[in-house]
Design a protein around this nucleic acid. Structure first.
Length: 122
DNA sequence: CATCTGACGACCG
DNA sequence: GCGGTCGCCAGAT
């Protein structure tokens, strides 16, 4: 599977903004969902200028393990992103490839899933 | 080919 | 708000 689209999209994230795994997966309509994005980022080759630190989990939570977690926090803080309790004010820093005209708050409310049936037990 | 694991996300208690 | 569980998929072993 080619993760070029993912890398390209991540590279488009401007400084001082972040994007979530789920958002990327939805934009690119990846079968693997957010998880495949995480996989791609984990395998993201250095030297391509991929701002991996700008990719955060749902709700702006930092999911990257310790080795890079501190580095990520440092980089994000260096970009002016406020991190509280290991979390980022997503509505404030979330970025979309095409900010049509709505505010950032509407960005995360992309879609709802009313047809969610209870997964009950087996 | 079978099984496990994982930089995820959503739901449930 | 948090921890646990399930779903989903792509590598690794």
């Amino acid at each position: 599977m080619s993760w070029e689209p993912i890398y390209r999209l991540v590279k488009r994230v401007p400084r001082g903004r972040v994007i979530t795994y789920g958002a990327i997966a939805r934009m690119l309509k990846l079968r693997g969902g957010a998880r495949s994005v995480g996989y791609a980022m984990a395998a993201s080759p250095s030297g391509r200028g991929i701002p991996w630190h700008r990719v955060v989990g749902a709700n702006g939570r930092l999911l990257i393990p310790e080795p890079h977690a501190s580095l990520q926090r440092r980089l994000l803080d260096s970009e002016g992103i406020t991190i509280r309790e290991g979390r980022i004010d997503l509505p404030r820093h979330s970025w979309l490839p095409r900010p049509e005209k709505k505010s950032a708050t509407a960005a995360k409310s992309a879609r709802k899933r009313p047809t969610r049936k209870s997964r009950g037990h087996v």
